[in-house]
Amino acid sequence: LKLEELTVSELRQQLRLRGLPVSGTKSMLLERMRG
Rank of each mutant, 00 (worst) to 15 (best):
S27V: 06
R18G: 03
S27I: 07
G35A: 12
E5L: 03
L6E: 06
R16A: 14
T25W: 02
R18K: 12
R12K: 13
L6M: 15
E10Q: 10
S9Y: 07
E4H: 13
E5G: 06
S9K: 15
E10S: 05
K2S: 10
L11H: 01
R16P: 00
R18N: 08
L29Q: 04
T25H: 08
Q14Y: 07
E10M: 02
L11C: 00
L17M: 12
T25F: 02
L29V: 01
E31W: 01
R16Y: 02
L11G: 02
L29W: 03
R16G: 13
L3K: 14
K26V: 14
R12T: 10
L3N: 08
P21Q: 07
M28N: 06
L29I: 01
K26G: 01
L17Q: 13
G24V: 01
L29T: 08
L6R: 04
G19T: 02
L17G: 09
M33W: 03
L30T: 09
Q14H: 10
R16D: 07
G19H: 10
G19D: 05
Q14N: 05
K2A: 13
E4T: 11
R34Q: 15
L1I: 15
K2W: 11
L3F: 15
R12F: 02
K26Y: 15
L30R: 08
L3S: 10
Q14F: 06
S23M: 10
S27C: 05
Q14M: 14
P21N: 08
L30Q: 14
Q14A: 15
M33G: 07
Q14T: 05
L15S: 10
Q13T: 15
T7W: 04
T7G: 10
L3Q: 08
R32E: 10
E31S: 08
L20G: 02
Q14L: 07
L3A: 08
M33A: 11
S27L: 08
E31M: 07
L20E: 10
S27E: 15
Q13V: 12
L29H: 07
L1R: 09
S9A: 14
L3G: 08
L30F: 05
V22K: 03
L6W: 11
E31Q: 10
T7H: 04
R32M: 06
L6F: 12
E31R: 05
S27R: 11
E5W: 01
P21A: 11
L3P: 11
R34C: 13
K26P: 01
R12D: 04
T25I: 00
T7L: 01
V22A: 14
Q13K: 14
L29C: 05
T7M: 02
S9N: 15
M28D: 11
V8W: 13
G35W: 05
K2G: 08
R34A: 12
V22E: 14
S27G: 12
E4D: 13
Q13D: 13
Q13F: 12
L29F: 03
K2C: 11
R32C: 02
E10W: 01
L6V: 06
R12V: 08
L11Y: 04
E4Y: 01
S23L: 06
T7A: 04
R18A: 14
R12Y: 04
L3E: 09
L17E: 12
S23K: 10
R32P: 05
S9G: 12
V8I: 03
S9M: 15
T7K: 10
K26A: 13
L20D: 02
K2T: 07
L6Q: 09
R32K: 03
R12L: 04
L17A: 14
S9C: 07
L20W: 02
L6T: 02
G24K: 00
G24F: 01
M28Y: 04
R34S: 13
T25D: 15
L11E: 00
K26R: 14
R16K: 15
K2D: 04
E31A: 09
S27T: 12
L30M: 11
V8C: 04
R34V: 09
P21F: 00
Q14K: 11
M33V: 09
R16C: 12
L29M: 07
L20K: 03
Q13W: 08
M28F: 02
V8A: 15
T25Q: 05
T7D: 12
G24N: 02
R34D: 06
M28Q: 15
L17C: 12
L11A: 02
L30S: 02
L17D: 14
T25A: 08
E4W: 00
